[in-house]
Design a protein around this nucleic acid. Sequence first.
DNA 1: TACATTTCGTTTGTATACAATAAAAGCGAG
DNA 2: CTCGCTTTTATTGTATACAAACGAAATGTA
Lengths: 223, 223
Amino acid sequence: MDVYNYIKDAIVLGKYGPGMRLTEEHLAKELKMSRTPIREAIKKLQADGLIVPLKRGVSVRSFTKEDIRQIYDLRTLLEGYAASQAATHRTNEDLEKMAEANKSYEQAINECVQSDIHSVKKVVEVNQQFHEAVVMASGNQHIHFHISKVVVVPLIFRSFYWYDRGMLERSLEVHRIILKAIENQESERARIAMHEHIYEGRDHVLTHLEDIRNHHLIKEDVH
Amino acid sequence: MDVYNYIKDAIVLGKYGPGMRLTEEHLAKELKMSRTPIREAIKKLQADGLIVPLKRGVSVRSFTKEDIRQIYDLRTLLEGYAASQAATHRTNEDLEKMAEANKSYEQAINECVQSDIHSVKKVVEVNQQFHEAVVMASGNQHIHFHISKVVVVPLIFRSFYWYDRGMLERSLEVHRIILKAIENQESERARIAMHEHIYEGRDHVLTHLEDIRNHHLIKEDVH
DNA sequence: TACATTTCGTTTGTATACAATAAAAGCGAG
DNA sequence: CTCGCTTTTATTGTATACAAACGAAATGTA
């Protein structure tokens, strides 16, 4: 499990750039382990769709604009549904958790400095907590399984480099709208607000895709 | 990959009943292989959600009624979306494939005899081909990934034991409606028809769940 | 030089051995 | 008899060795 996260992070952070071939032995040497646990992690990453099988071995998956568009469409569909379901099924405890997550989000945004990677990471993390709280409130235990496979999430991470304060505050505002709709049990309102929220994220990622790609290439040289 | 399908089939056919613990060594002996390829298959099944991790080892997942309901809800959401997208993006080639799949479906239904397991399997298989054709026509390459993980599909299989001719013909009729809507590019109509179609399947499975459970128990004793 | 063939190195697939750990059985005291 | 502890057994985690498959480079021939 540790290996799994190591490789995943390496992909997300761009250490292993898209298209790069991963060999078991190299990873084994890098992590000072035998190939066995590496294989296991690779199989899992494959199931996640983060790496793709070659005729021999695997390589880090690379996403086209169209891929990202499609994956975001699915995420919109799933999370929009989650929000609408949350509006009808939420308990008081659910509401508390979502509100709390949103509070942390607000705080993280205020403390966030563009140049400090840790503060940016914090924002991403807390943002996810809100989204997860919504999914939990939906009452459908299986959505989480699928949303976690909507792989772009990690890729998005880097796009946060280009998030400005205004954007984050807008994002917070939409979170509040979603939360309110769920509180008031307005399921259609909740769904639509969530749709809009994720589409905004999608557009942002797509417009900055080129920058992200360049960033990738720089890192790739290191290895 | 062979191992993977072997275990999957064994679960689907009830040889390994829900809750049953699977140990690597036993499987290895049964398949006359070493543990290594077994481990690999188990990891994949786990990613599919067909088996769940225990503190030690894994066991075949058992689904409650609520699980099935929720999973079907997701399937409805995803396939409904696929149908609506297909209505706007379908090419002539897509239309041909869907029509062809539906024709095979009709034929399989006519040839189907309740008592003959092979003819029943054929119906299930061809039915899936239609659904896959719709997904392909949607133009979103990633939906398939998710729908394939909507695990109940295999479980449904057994519910076909209880399908009567009337039900199958009704199913064929709805397929035709969906196809027509896609042909006419009526996206909302296509989505709703697909929703209805899958919900009908869900209700059928839920009403016959008890029978399926009993069937399981019988098979379980053998092992 | 261009192309086919062979050979060699790299990388994965599978088997197996051993260590670590969880579960189960056995044992003794209250 | 039952509860808790110890010992034993079963099962997984990890490492490693070898075989098979693939790819690339080198060699030979036209």
